[in-house]
Amino acid sequence: MDGSTLILTDDAGKSLPCFLETTFDIEGKEYFLLQPVDHSVQIFAWQASETEEEEEELVDIDDDEIDQIFETAHAVLAEQNLKLKRTAFTLTVEGELPELIEDDIYEIGIGTEEEGECEEFQELANFYHEEQAYSVFTSVDPLIFFAKLGADGKPELLSPEEIEYIQPYVAEHLIDAEDAEEEA
């Protein structure tokens, strides 16, 4: 079944086609590791930093703001032959991403400030909408989802509790898979 495509659907009925990267069985239940077919992207707004004078920082925007700027972001990305899509769980772009250039990589904090985790993102485009600056980023590391088959037979995302429960098994499964590849 690896290499297949599964469709995740959110509560609003939007879909997200994903490649099935691997499956693993935990205590008789099958779980899936999925990666979106298209590249996952995030749009952030730029605002003046509260701590550094004359500095700007990236801030998350909500769905209402995405609705307002979507057409502008879509047009800006289309100039690079990228098609912005309103997919389930994440925005995605279809097309070939530009070559990864070190100057286009930003470390963006994820989670809470206490966790202090950062991810590397590649800036794909920047634009203004009603005098507000925005940037579109894709993660340098691909986005992955953990899923299982629901009662209706369709793939569904795992809850945070389920992800926490399977995490030790996933790590073990991936290490075993890596070892098998090295032996081959």
Rank of each mutant, 00 (worst) to 15 (best):
I66W: 02
F24H: 09
H129A: 06
V59L: 02
A125D: 05
I66L: 10
I69Y: 00
E55I: 08
I166S: 09
H173A: 08
G109V: 03
Y31R: 09
N81F: 06
C118T: 07
G3P: 09
L174T: 13
F121Y: 05
D176V: 01
D103M: 12
I110G: 03
E56P: 00
A73K: 04
Q68H: 15
V136R: 00
G116T: 15
T92W: 00
E114H: 13
L77W: 05
E55K: 14
E53V: 08
L84V: 04
E162P: 03
R86W: 07
I101G: 14
T51E: 13
I101H: 14
G111M: 10
Y165C: 07
T5E: 12
Q68A: 13
G153R: 07
D176M: 04
V140D: 10
I69K: 02
H173L: 05
G116P: 11
G150A: 13
E115W: 15
K29T: 08
D10V: 09
G28K: 04
D63T: 11
E94S: 01
D62R: 12
L158S: 01
L77A: 07
P17I: 09
H173F: 04
E96M: 03
I69C: 02
D152Q: 10
I163E: 10
R86V: 06
H74F: 11
K148I: 10
V41A: 07
A45C: 12
Y31P: 03
N126M: 15
I108S: 05
G116W: 12
S40D: 06
A48G: 08
P168R: 00
P36A: 09
P36L: 03
Y106C: 06
V59E: 04
D10F: 11
D64K: 07
T90G: 03
E115V: 01
F24T: 06
F137D: 00
L91E: 02
Q35D: 12
E131L: 05
A88V: 02
A125P: 01
G109W: 02
K29G: 07
E50V: 03
E164D: 05
P17K: 04
F24P: 11
L16K: 03
F44M: 01
F137C: 00
D10G: 05
D104Q: 14
D67W: 05
A180R: 02
I163M: 14
M1F: 02
I61L: 03
D64C: 11
Y106I: 09
E99C: 06
D60V: 09
L157E: 04
P36Q: 04
P36H: 07
V93P: 13
E52N: 04
